[in-house]
Design a protein around this nucleic acid. Sequence first.
DNA 1: CTTAGGG
DNA 2: CCCTAAG
Length: 713
Amino acid sequence: MAWAFVLMTSHEQRNHQLLTNPLVNFKQSKRRAEMVFQKRSSSEMESCGGGQVAEMPRVPKSARGKRSVRKKETQNQAQMSAFDLLATVAGKLLDEGVGSLGNMSAGAPALAACAKDVRVKQEQCDEEMKQFKHEVTDQDSCNESAILPHIAFQRAVNNARIEDPKAKSEAQDKESSMISCTKAELGCNFGVIADRWSPESVESGAFTGDAVASLMPTAPAGFHKNAPEMYNLLDSMDVDAKPPPLVSSDSTGEMPLYGDKIHRSTSLPRGPKGVGGFAVDRDDDDDKSSGCTHPSTTTNRDFRSNCTAEYSRVRKLLTSKYRKVAPARIHKSDLSYSDVERKPSFRNKKMHYTRQRTQRSTFKRRKLFDRHSVLASEFGAANGKGNTKVTGRDSHAEANKGTNSMPFQKSCVSNDCHVKLRIKSFKVPELLVEIPESATVGSLKKTVLEAVTAILGGGLRVGVLHHGKKVRDDSKTLIQAGIGQDDMLDNLGFSLEPNCTQNPQVQAPEDISFLETIDTTEPLARIAPADSCSKHGEVDVSQELALTPLAMNYQGSDHDSVHSPGGVSSPDKVSTNSRALVPVPAADPNAGAVVPANKSKRSPEQGQRRIRRPFSVAEVEALVLAVEKLGTGRWRDVKLRAFDNAKHRTYVDLKDKWKTLVHTASISPQQRRGEPVPQELLDRVLAAQAYWSQQQAKLQPKTPPLAEARLLT
DNA sequence: CTTAGGG
DNA sequence: CCCTAAG
């Protein structure tokens, strides 16, 4: 027996506009990302020491630069604003605790802490909020004067450009990181939906009043055209931002956000009204909401080893069973679930390594998880007919209703000019999860998590609540846990929690908990799309757990190839698409558990091959840049430097990518497949490859020198 | 854990 | 991407 859990959505608000706009702008942000990388490359190369630059046979800067893009940048600055905001939000969500985004959003409050705060404040601000909304509306809202964080940030960057080259590059670095993070990593596009938008506001990127941040899977080529819906994932979260000094924030609803909190920007999608889940708040008394900071990640070795061990053991034990699907309804509950059980098993001597260690550990952990996560999704595809299916759907519904849901919150402008953004609830696209009765709670969580992370990008953990109680024992089967009984439909809930392995103490139990409502009315129909694509080998997997709409669009754009090359203009599309489908599991709550027994039970579905995620041009560029500077033998450094935020890219991946890039560069364009990589980049690849090969040769004076010497003599 | 390579 | 041998 299996149940189908339809996560999310009760109201299917399909708003094409919502989706459309963000996606349209997606291109722009993409360009921008490229641009940033480009610029960074220049500055880096320069700072890299003349020698290298000089020696490195590279394409002239003039050729490298994308002037048109640069111009665009200016134009798009304003439009990007919203994206910045979203990116920040996403960053918080995803990296909270992991520290990847942490660099950029220093002091990002722990979601947990914030969540708490949110609740407390919610009520307090409730009324003010109403008023605020009024104000905004009355004032015709969206006043052009409103300034978004990004703008401020951009200004800062611009200033830096003029005054301090160093600062400039730093700022840009941040931006680029952010980009890679948000785009490459999240695999999602964030859209901001304002309750009231005016054309001006949309264009200027300024928005006032209630805004909704939504998460949507990055779209494949052509997605924006058909993309009917939008995925709302934001639920409850806090974002602190400082208003730019230059901006006066008054009660008009301006939303000044500061650079280091919010960097990325993008165009603002127009959205439906009041889909709310994300609101920009101004807080006049921000005492309370401040300390949401949270230390960054620590690794959990035990966990890793356990996983590893288990992984090897279980990886091939995938079993499928019957599957029966029944629509289920899940109630959201107020309870949030926290795993405080996990301890920081290892924190030791090498604490100062933090960063590196974190990085590395993260990797490993990630690696393990990747397998896990994908597993479930691929499972079905792999076995022809798996029992676990997760299908996403494009429709947003209110994730939370009742006490927990508070779409809009009052905005608060703190004394110290910090603007607090509170995302009370995240909206999640409708997800359909089909899971066998024999599945464990753990796998249920995982499955749900996969579905969610596929969209969000990871960094989250899923909690399961049954009758309002957290079900922590992942090894319990659903039946054992009583899930599946008749009452199940009404008593099962899921919560999203930040997945911070490292700070058990700070670990916020109930942060972003969003509970989906299971929609009984929409059964498996959604999975149908997946089936239609079953003939495409690789795609199947994606399809299986893919968000239906996405998949559909994807297919639509290119039926013949697994990765639709999409338009050259938006290279990310393809990869994006796959990314969106890639679940990035968060740490398993039980991971830290000492019970070895659980291990075996844990995930029958483990070692699946990671989903293929084609490198986007931006990523390639970042890679090229890094390699140009670091060389070809320091993949870990390359990773740290250019893909620190891209959890799914391991140094091995980067190395492999470089390998393929070199190959690609040496074959005729006609033979190349997939998303076309700009020749310019390929040239640089060859140049860098040549340069570093030579460099490497020189470092081994043993034979080479002799040979040369002989030749010379 | 990283690298380097083959698959 | 995966897997592995080596370091």
